[in-house]
Structure formats: structure tokens, C-alpha cells
Computed example of a mutant assay.
Amino acid sequence: MSRARAFVFAVSLASLTVLSACSGGHEDQPKAAPQTVSGETLTVRTAPIDDIKRVGATLTTRDMGEAVARISGVLVTLNVREGDTVSKGQVIGTIQDQRLNFEASAYAATAAQAEADYNRVKTLYEKGIYAKARMEQAETALRSARAQRAAAGDLASQGLIRAPTSGKVIRADVPAGAAVMAGTSIATITAGPRVVRLQLPEQQARSLVLGQSVRLEANGLNANGTVSQIYPAIDNGQVIADITPQGLDSVLLGERVVTAISLGQRTGIKVPLSYVTTRYGLDYVRLVAANKSVSDIPVQTAPLDGQSVEILSGLRDGDTLAPYGVSK
């Protein structure tokens, strides 16, 4: 045997010795025992679950009172601003029309003249100078003048703007000194309790029921509500419903509210949150095999009611799950 061949043989023999040693050491290490479960488990089944939809709504009041101008003229004063509380019948502004004031003054002067003429004719009639027909003529003229004076005064007094209802002013954006027409809205006042007003397509609205519970979310606040009214008319394919909220007193009127409302039922797999965990953006459940061993498998979920989720994929009927934290 040459020296070169002897060297190659020695190197090969050393390599085999090292590999054998390494292999033997690996076999000696103990294998990890499979994780098993004991105690509570859950067998999943397909069953009807509520079809929860998240729909935008608006916080408002049941009714809105509009304080409008009854005559045309200049808005001389406006005594309220947004956020003020007013009472029904309270004077909140004044509109002035000089033409109406002039007419009222003219009719007042005419009524005063008719009253003076009546008194003079009455005196002469009692002395037998004037006939009864002249007396009746003066009396008729006095009644007509008084009626015209009352009508002119009432028309001029319509420049007072009064609150149509008790509540809070949410809009008063017409500045004092502005010219307004009859029928112009000067201020908007809330009337009635707060409600969350919801609009739904008519096909979905058929599932609404009076007294139905609704979850609400507004400005970071979570609250509950109840469907208190479903309006009978359809507007552009939309049905309007009012939800009476509980716990949204600090939310401003007009603010958007997200509602989670049940619009019927569908079949699916519902699992409590204690059986689901999230790691690195993925949801997992603990699947229990026939030999009681458990393994984490990924699933796709959708939120339901805050206490459970719907399994969209990853499980089937009859699978058994273990809650997280229960193993041995």
C-alpha cells in the first residue's frame, strides 16, 4: 500500500469514528413527550348564529324644533347661541319691519279718531240732534278701526321669535343684523329624548324587531341600546329606525355611532374567546386528538358579540378543542 492510499484510509476511518460518536450521542437524548389535555373540552358543531352587521348611525333627538321667522325684516337681536337651554315660549330674538310699525301707528291713529267721532256723535244723539242711523254709522266705523288696529298690532308683534319647545339650542347661525324672509329658520332646538337614528336597506330592515338589543360604539365609548321605533315609511329604499341608547350622555349630538345589530341568522361554528389565542397576527385553537394529545392549528375567525368568535375556516363538525391554559 502506498503512502497516499494509507493516508486516505486513515482519514476515512477517523471520519467514520467521529460520525458514529455523534450519532450515538443524539440517540441517547430523551425525546419530548407529547402534550396531552385533561379536564374541560369543547366539541364544535355547526349551529345557527346571529348575523351581526356593523352599520353607521347618527346620535340625534327624537324631534327637532325650528324657531322660524314669521315676518320678513331685519333680525335685530338674537339672545341665544349653540348649547344654551331654552323653555317653550321663551323670546330668543326679535325681527323688525319698519313698514309694519308704520302701519300699526297709522291704524292706531285711525282708531283714535274713530273713537273721538263716536263720542261726539253719541253726545249729539243723546241730545236729539243726530238720528239713530248716524249713531249706528259712527259705532260701525269705531269697531272697524279697532279691528284694523288690533290686526296691525298683532302683525307687528310677530317679529318676536319664540322657542317652539323646551330643549337645547344646537344651531343658531343667523347673525344679528341680517335680513331674513318669512319662514327662515333662526335656531334649531332639540325636543324629546336622545336616540341613535339608523338607516337600513329595506331587505335587511325586515329582520328588525322592537325591543331588539344593539351594541353601540361612539368616540371610544361602548354602550348598549334598544330598538324603540321602526318608521313605517320607506325613503329611497331605506328604512329608518330609532335606538334608545344607554351610556352615551357625554357624546355630542350629530356624532357618528357604529351599531352592531343582528339582522337574521346564518349557520356557522361559534367558539368562546377562551379557546382562541393570537400569535404574530394569526389566530390559533388547540385541537384535541383521539389520544388526548393537543396541537395548535391556525384558524380564520370573525368577531361576534365580544365573548365569542365565528370560525370561518380551519375546523369542522366534531372537532374537539381545549381551552388555553388547561394541559398536563
Score class of each variant (00 low, 15 high):
309 V>K: 04
40 E>A: 11
253 L>W: 00
307 Q>N: 13
56 G>Y: 04
175 P>T: 12
99 R>C: 03
105 S>R: 13
1 M>V: 14
23 S>W: 09
273 L>A: 10
291 N>I: 09
280 Y>Q: 12
322 A>D: 06
48 P>K: 06
177 G>L: 10
147 A>I: 06
55 V>L: 08
26 H>Q: 13
131 A>S: 14
45 R>H: 07
53 K>F: 14
157 S>M: 11
137 Q>D: 08
316 R>N: 06
263 L>D: 04
47 A>G: 03
165 T>C: 12
220 G>Y: 06
268 G>L: 08
118 Y>M: 10
280 Y>N: 15
139 E>V: 03
276 V>G: 04
227 V>I: 15
247 G>V: 05
54 R>Y: 13
186 I>P: 01
212 Q>E: 15
305 D>W: 11
99 R>A: 15
119 N>G: 04
274 S>G: 08
166 S>L: 05
224 N>A: 03
37 V>L: 04
8 V>Y: 13
102 F>K: 07
62 R>F: 05
270 K>H: 05
112 A>D: 14
235 D>V: 15
324 Y>R: 07
187 A>L: 08
76 V>S: 11
158 Q>R: 13
298 P>T: 06
232 P>S: 01
297 I>Y: 00
315 L>D: 00
137 Q>A: 11
90 Q>N: 02
115 E>C: 01
33 A>N: 05
4 A>E: 04
301 T>R: 01
98 Q>S: 14
173 D>A: 14
17 T>N: 01
229 Q>W: 02
297 I>M: 08
35 Q>F: 13
237 G>N: 08
10 A>N: 01
213 S>G: 01
265 Q>C: 03
160 L>T: 10
166 S>M: 06
241 A>G: 06
139 E>D: 10
178 A>I: 00
292 K>S: 10
206 R>Q: 12
12 S>C: 14
47 A>L: 07
206 R>N: 02
127 K>I: 03
41 T>R: 01
24 G>Y: 04
315 L>M: 05
41 T>A: 06
250 S>N: 09
180 V>C: 12
91 V>L: 11
115 E>Y: 12
59 L>A: 13
196 V>A: 10
25 G>Y: 09
260 A>P: 01
33 A>R: 14
321 L>W: 07
255 E>V: 07
20 S>Y: 07
74 V>Y: 04
79 N>K: 12
43 T>D: 07
316 R>H: 15
244 T>Y: 03
44 V>G: 02
87 S>R: 15
129 I>K: 02
162 R>W: 00
125 Y>K: 05
199 Q>S: 10
293 S>F: 02
202 E>P: 02
82 E>T: 12
